[in-house]
Design a protein around this nucleic acid. Structure first.
Lengths: 219, 219
DNA sequence: GTCTATAGGTGGATAGAC
DNA sequence: GTCTATCCACCTATAGAC
């Protein structure tokens, strides 16, 4: 999975990302980072100001990747329905390559109330959530979606499913009968499809319109 | 908010619950617990085996409360639709009284892969998730819900919304324009209603049936 | 049951050789 | 740029007086 690094800086970043995500910031020691990255642990202070500085660098790099992935998916969306599917797919793709990413972000919310991500959150908000909300609003205007749901709330509900599934892996695993190690990859992919279906089913107009019929014909 | 305690054990539990939830297990020190509970910090080792033992006691007490709340709500559910609303309401009620609870559980998943909650998760699974899944399955059999969604996945999607909203408060706050302190209580309640609506909209049968009509009359 | 004092161990960070 | 050695702060846990 992980290839050898010539660049010590990248090696440190990779090791730190993995450790912070799996153990948390406080529980991860400088020496663990050095060990995992096969780099002298004192070297960390040459490339980064402090343990916190390293942490911030890890968060920043990950957000950039997420934004790029989101960008690529939204670009190919042809309709509001498609945009919803693409938004879910963007997260699913991102999670496939960075399985621990939700852990890292979730921790940042929990441990530091997003203090270190204060400059990053608005970029995620405008880069992904706002675009999804906008697509939903668009679908409502085009009468493709029901209009009694708040577009921003609906966007949160959509993304929440897949992010929760990733964060609460142990709990979800127990619920689905796979134990605390969490569900196998196949089930995870299956849930990704389900999440898009669930969101689109919620957004769908409740009853079939009778298109093209004059109003008088409706009882 | 917090009343004075005569019972040092309860004082320690309350202080630890609050601190573990807001800072995490590793970042919380014994002396902070003692300080917040107005109890000598060495006393902790008289009532609990260790810092880990205290942590486990906090988790256990919280799960019991959640299960009781869930129980009470499910008991009054008269229909599958009602059960879905009651499940969301159970979590909403619980979160109202224990705003930091999701943080605590989320941390346990993230920091320790639910190691300390291994004995608690099955109880939550069977006490709440299974009952919600069962209600959804029931609704599908009664033709009240669409039948192309996996009941267990649908249960996860339903709960995911409200739990995600609680965990990702800072991110959700930024998205909705309230800053990293998170949305005000009113918006939180509003989202609770939305979550139930969203889930029921997703579960609803896609088109209106023509009830009681003989089959031949359908074109 | 409650408190003081402290042992024993570890972690972040730096100084300075190479 | 990289490594060794180490300082200092702080944390968990216990011993033992009261």
């Amino acid at each position: 999975m992980h290839h050898q690094h010539k660049d010590p800086r990248a090696a440190i970043l990779d090791a730190a990302e993995s450790l912070f995500a799996s153990q948390g910031f406080e529980a991860t020691t400088i020496k663990q980072v050095g060990g995992a990255g096969r780099v002298n642990s004192a070297l960390l202070y040459y490339y980064f100001k402090s343990k916190e500085g390293l942490y911030h660098a890890v968060l920043t790099r990950m957000v950039e990747t997420l934004l790029t992935t989101g960008q690529e998916h939204f670009e190919v969306a042809a309709s509001p329905e498609d945009a919803v599917r693409q938004a879910v797919a963007a997260f699913a793709t991102f999670l496939l390559h960075h399985p621990r990413a939700p852990n890292l972000f979730a921790r940042e919310m929990l441990d530091h109330e997003a203090k270190h991500a204060a400059d990053l959150l608005p970029r995620v908000a405008s880069g992904i959530f706002e675009r999804l909300s906008e697509a939903i609003r668009q679908g409502q205007m085009e009468k493709a979606f029901r209009s009694d749901l708040d577009p921003r709330f609906a966007a949160i509900s959509t993304i929440a499913q897949v992010v929760y599934f990733a964060i609460a892996r142990p709990a979800v695993g127990v619920l689905l009968g796979h134990g605390t190690t969490g569900p196998p990859p196949e089930v995870t992919r299956e849930f990704g499809r389900h999440a898009a279906d669930f969101a689109l089913a919620a957004l769908a107009r409740p009853r079939e319109r009778a298109p093209m019929l004059p109003l008088e014909s409706v009882p």
